[in-house]
Amino acid sequence: MAHPAETLQEDAVRELIARHAGPERVPARFKIITDTSDFFRVEYNDVVILGAVPYWVKRYEKEGRFGIDDEPKYWVRRAINLNTGATKILKLVFHEQFETTVGEVTIICFRSPKKEARILDLVAGHKNFMHGHWVLDAAGNIVRILEFIRGPRFDEVVAGYGADHHDYFHRYFPSVLDQYLELVLAIKLLHDHGEKHGDIRRDHILWDVDTKVNRWIDFDYNYQHGESMFGFDLQGLGNILIFLAGRGDVLVADLHRNQRELFDTLWGEDLSIAYKNRVANLKKIYPYIPDSLNRVLLHFSFGANIFYETTDQLLDDLARARADMVSLTGRQT
């Protein structure tokens, strides 16, 4: 038999759901959860109480990994705040440690709720980051309650610009570069506060259709760094820049198949140091790319002898590249 207080709470929650979605949508059975330690226990239509606020749990979120089917993230749930009706993302605690490989380098990564909570506090109000707050559940788990961002991935938006690369580069890239600079400045803010993003990938930037800006998401990763604390973040920024300048990844296999004359001009040093199947020296493919921009790209190539250690170094070089883009295209943005 249920405890009276529990019954009362369930009645109150039923009423809230009915008020929000209509009486016919109130589920026959659902759990009220205050301890989210076992996130697999949190099921569709359950209600999680966090900081006295009831959240009606809906679907779990997914994460795409380049060509692999979207992977379900069972600890990340879409939910409705039953007090306000707002859609939120609940990120439950999932301690994960794994190794990832970049080139032949193995990096030990951690998923840290503490880190994400810290950064949410740091970037509250910053337009280029996802926003949210965190609450300790009944068991002391740091649950992050994130605002839902409506909009597509930045890279998907960019890939749709222009009739071809020439058209894209001259008509759209100056504006894309400005947006990228804004994103690098946002990462600089983290670095200036001794924080890493930890998982800089192009699918972690969303174009917010409401605020019309790009926003970084998912900063719960940390990694064991060596001498260069921000090296992995900078490598991620470099990969994104190569993608943006090329309006997609320029793959060696595609060149071999479709543009053999260009393939024959490539050396190993022209390829991305992180992904050896991608071209970093894009000027060989698109000769109208200004030298100043291409020099930045070459910092992320296999032929590079010096690497960026800070966002300031990258931003300095990009300022020159931006000026040259303005000269080339006559466009300020």
Binding site: V102, E227, Q235
Partner: peptide, 14 residues
Amino acid sequence: SHSEEFVFGSTSSK
């Protein structure tokens, strides 16, 4: 390795 220095940096180079 070159890639390792790229990601992790090198104390002696620094």
